[in-house]
Design a protein around this nucleic acid. Structure first.
Lengths: 141, 141
DNA sequence: ATAAACCTTAGAGTCTACTCCAGGGTCAAC
DNA sequence: GTTGACCCTGGAGTAGACTCTAAGGTTTAT
């Protein structure tokens, strides 16, 4: 059995975070010491690994709730449920990447237009683009 | 002069948002009616356009504060200040894209491994990968 | 003259995933 | 027997950009 900060250290998270996960309903210590300290079993350890892997793969804590409820009773669930969640997460991430790429292009266009030297900003083309309400993406898009 | 919801409609934002920008210090209506209604001038309109362009380009409201203070007194500032801010924003965005691409790769690897049909989740490879704590990025990375 | 559609303010709530705090109890070492 | 490192709980605070609410006042159309 591990105490909270042992488990925390093993997984490079804080003890705070583990208590937070408990409050969130993701991970309960399977025992307590006489003095009330949380004691985590090997099973708990594995469950935490599962949680952190999922988090690293882009799932929200809410999603992880769902994944765990499937994981803990696999027999009553289908692969389809898992792939649906995964695919929808993938769509979200792809969409976000797409948006950020637009933003990146805007910023690059702004930068490319401006020398950026010590001159006064009076004629700064970045400011001018923003004033003019130019779609900075134009041209290349 | 425009009333708040006229200006809001023109720029497809809510009146709430305009009041919020005022509280934030980004955009003050340049006049008030006898009854206290905000009245926005053509200048205000332009300034809002500037704000929204910058926001769309990925600047935070805080950044926009800075950009505006430069914009409103260009003489005392240099292009360098503007490009520095822009470049740092670009770096942030690039970094975030990079992270999200990692996440995307993880999700794709998970998905690729699982058929996702109506079968029971007992042998679902996605769940298994998460259990095993496999670095799903491996192989291709 | 009254209803609908607008406007005002101050302040609270939303979302996510923590992070920190106060105020206290527990444990191991010297 | 005390220091220091650990643990507990409940609850507040953080970031960013809104979004909404309550409780009213104003304008416009009918």
């Amino acid at each position: 059995m591990y105490r909270i900060s042992e488990l925390a250290k093993t997984h490079s998270v804080s003890a705070h975070t583990l208590r937070y996960y408990e409050k969130y309903g993701l991970l309960r210590a399977s025992a307590r010491s006489d003095s009330g300290y949380r004691l985590y079993s090997e099973e708990d350890n594995k469950q935490l690994r599962f949680i952190l892997m999922a988090r690293q793969s882009g799932f929200s804590l809410d999603d992880i709730q769902t994944l765990l409820s499937i994981e803990l009773d696999k027999g009553s669930h289908t692969c389809e449920e898992v792939t649906r969640l995964t695919r929808s997460k993938l769509d979200e991430v792809s969409q976000r990447i797409h948006e950020l790429k637009q933003v990146k292009k805007s910023l690059e266009t702004l930068l490319a237009s401006c020398g950026g030297g010590e001159e006064s900003a009076v004629h700064c083309t970045i400011l001018q683009s923003l004033e003019d309400g130019e779609k900075t993406q134009r041209g290349k898009n």
